[in-house]
């Protein structure tokens, strides 16, 4: 690429950017937006530290399980996988939250939304990139769990059960839920601490209130995302438990996502 030298009388010679002889632009493809969002999640210290933290915590919990307890008690592949669920389900939503809120906390939205004024497309790209990263993290957890199961067998002589696809699928689905929930809360609140705190507090508060107030018992059972997801994680979900997952998912994931997307499109970017 060559640069155009331009010298005008009475001015110091100022170099102008070279002209790009590119075809007339078409709209930015969604795959490109998603690739950019994925890169944005990985190219900051906050993003990398979060992933590193998820990795370290997951590895630590698996390692602790590997060396604790009886060698013949609860050392199946499924048990190792189950151990990774709680720490990851707390940290994964933060991944979703940060993908959205940094546009506001760091004010990068000024650039992001001038390069793609159709903000819903950016929102979906963020959703997809957070999901991809979340899935990668869960798969990494599965690999670590498999490794630990194998090592436990080799070192401590456990006799593990291996093939349990239902809990594996359950873990993937469950963790997908929490990532999406993080993205949704980030979109609604546009503020990292507020989104993280409300994500962690509100559903738990609901569980507490629901079990304390008698006339809320039924509603509580149906709208408790933590309770609803438990059988999914365990891989034992069946019957009306699916309905509970659907209802709780609609209230805690789908509805916030729609509200968040609406807010993302309408709010002023400053």
């Amino acid at each position: 690429m060559s640069t155009v030298e331009q010298t005008a009388p009475g001015r110091t010679g100022v170099r102008l950017p070279s002209r790009l002889n590119l075809p007339e632009p078409t709209r930015v493809p969604f795959t490109r937006l998603t690739a950019v969002e994925l890169r944005k999640q990985l190219n900051t210290r906050a993003g990398r530290w979060l992933l590193a933290a998820i990795g370290v915590v997951t590895a630590a919990i698996v390692a602790i399980m590997l060396f604790s307890g009886q060698a013949d008690d609860g050392k199946n592949f499924g048990d190792f996988v189950a151990a990774t669920v709680i720490p990851q389900s707390i940290l994964l939503p933060i991944l979703g939250v940060l993908a959205v809120t940094s546009e506001w906390s760091q004010r990068t939205g000024l650039v992001t939304f001038t390069l793609e004024p159709h903000r819903a497309r950016v929102g979906w790209a963020k959703l997809v990139s957070a999901v991809l990263l979340g899935l990668a993290t869960v798969v990494a957890a599965l690999v670590l769990a498999a490794l630990a199961t194998f090592l436990c067998q080799a070192i401590r002589g456990s006799d593990p059960t291996w093939v349990e696809w239902k809990p594996l699928l359950g873990v993937l689905i469950g963790q997908l839920f929490v990532v999406l929930q993080g993205v949704a809360f980030g979109m609604i609140l546009q503020n990292t601490p507020a989104a993280v705190v409300s994500y962690l507090v509100i559903p738990t508060l609901w569980t507490v209130v629901g079990s304390a107030v008698s006339w809320l018992h039924t509603a509580s059972k149906w709208l408790d995302i933590n309770q609803a997801l438990q059988p999914v994680y365990d891989g034992t979900v069946h019957g009306d438990q699916w309905a509970k997952v659907a209802v709780a998912g609609a209230v805690w994931v789908l509805l916030p996502l729609l509200a968040g997307m609406w807010r993302l499109r309408r709010s002023e970017v400053k």
Binding site: M1, L22, P25, V28, R32, N43, R45, V111
Partner: peptide, 23 residues
């Protein structure tokens, strides 16, 4: 000043070039 303080200058331009589809 509305840029992510944790990104490098080059990274910011690279992200822009990616969105715009530039070399």
């Amino acid at each position: 000043s509305a840029q992510h303080t944790g990104r490098t200058g080059r990274e910011v331009l690279t992200l822009g070039a990616m969105v715009m589809g530039l070399d």
